[in-house]
Amino acid sequence: MPGWSRHDGHAIAFPLHNVDTDQLIPSRFMSTPRSQGYARFLLHDLRKDAAGEDHPHFPLNRHRHASILIAGRNFGSGSSREAAVYALVDAGIKAVFAPSFGDIFAGNAVNNGLLPACVSDDDFNLLIRSLGDGAELAMVALDRGQFSIGNVQVPFALDPSWRKKLINGWDDIDLTMQHLADIERHRTKLKQTAPWSRPVADV
């Protein structure tokens, strides 16, 4: 996964609260192999009517080139399905700004190069007001923790370990493989001090 520290793209307002992962991708699409692409599943049931036609007023249907979402609180709450992040990433979304995120979703986002950036309630309202129904060119400076739309500039919060991971495009498995000796030591100690912690085999 390539790292990134700055992104320029179009931001749009999607100010609903509690957009859960079941909205981001309904469960019926989740058996699809990732190689087939998940963009078409993003927010499927909010975006389309029962006949499968796009709602013309839905923000992502009006602005298909948007790569930054300003979303309401508790974005990505609910299930651990990483497919919710795949749908966003495959649709070209690079960053989501919201007052809060589901904990599991935020971790999954970072593991796929998607920025889950926390902004204050006041800054959220400011961004929503400045965007209205439009799409505006915006800039994310990951290294400085700043986001700007024209003259409007707001800071955002991000766990320092996540910032580093996004910038470097790190893969956790590679990092962990450097600690194999420590892991083995822990494993051996555990077998001596807490042998009960290993499951009894089937009889």
């Binding site: 497919a83 979703f105 971790g107 593991n111 956790d172 498995i173 962990t176 892991i183």
Partner: peptide, 22 residues
């Protein structure tokens, strides 16, 4: 605690997980 697919792959491969203490 629940984890996403990248983390599941990590646990499968290493039997460990990176996590910040809540």
């Amino acid at each position: 605690f629940g984890i996403g697919a990248t983390e599941v792959a990590h646990v499968l491969a290493t039997q460990t997980i990176w996590q910040r203490k809540p």
